[in-house]
Simulated assay, not measured.
Amino acid sequence: MGSGYTNVCLIGLLLVEIGITLWIKANISSRLIQHVKENKLITDGVFAYVRHPIYSAFPHLFIGLILLMNNIYLLILPILFWIFLTVLMILTEEKKLVNEFGEAYINYAKKTDRVILFRRK
């Protein structure tokens, strides 16, 4: 295996690390469960960069692991997951959040992308 494969592995490891970090920051660092119990909208920490960091973590993990396995045919799976997740979020969770938090969530959504990390609107 040449240096090209080594570079792919490094990118894969980086994506896995980003995915794990997103998940940890969304679940543990932000005290997500406490905020949900208190019915509070979280817009700081990792949520300042992406509205659904847990959902964003999974494609990073999947693509990173696929690159580490060196199987490009499996790259269709994160794409299918992304499509399914986007439709599911639009039809359910996003509507629920607008109903719960109203204008505060609408303004937050205007500034922050749904799942693409660091993409500002």
Rank of each mutant, 00 (worst) to 15 (best):
Y108D: 09
V50F: 06
I20H: 02
L74D: 08
T86Y: 01
K96L: 09
K110G: 06
M1P: 03
A109Q: 11
L80T: 06
A57S: 15
S56Q: 08
L77V: 15
L13I: 05
A109I: 00
D44I: 08
I66A: 05
I28D: 04
L13D: 01
H35N: 15
R119K: 15
N7F: 09
L15R: 06
R119Y: 07
T43A: 13
K111Q: 14
L117D: 00
L13T: 06
T6Q: 08
Y108C: 04
E103A: 09
L32G: 02
A26L: 12
K96N: 06
T92K: 11
D113N: 15
T92Q: 03
K110M: 01
S3E: 04
A109F: 05
H60T: 00
I72P: 03
I76W: 11
K25W: 04
L74W: 15
L80C: 13
L88T: 07
K111L: 02
L61I: 12
L67W: 04
L77P: 02
L41Q: 12
R51D: 12
I54C: 12
V115S: 06
I24T: 09
G12M: 07
K40L: 12
E17Q: 07
I66K: 05
L15T: 00
L85A: 04
G2T: 15
L13E: 05
D44T: 15
L74N: 04
L32P: 03
L65F: 14
N39F: 06
K25E: 10
L85Y: 07
E100Y: 04
E94I: 08
L117R: 02
S3N: 11
K95F: 00
I83D: 02
T21M: 03
K25D: 07
K121A: 03
H52R: 14
Q34Y: 14
T112Y: 10
G45I: 10
T92F: 05
R51I: 14
Q34S: 13
L88R: 15
F101N: 01
V50P: 04
I20S: 04
F81C: 05
A104I: 06
K37P: 08
I54F: 07
G45N: 09
G12N: 05
N27L: 14
E100K: 14
T92I: 14
I11H: 01
L88F: 10
I54M: 14
Y55F: 15
P59Q: 03
F58S: 09
T43Q: 13
I66C: 03
L15C: 13
K25L: 03
I76D: 08
Q34M: 04
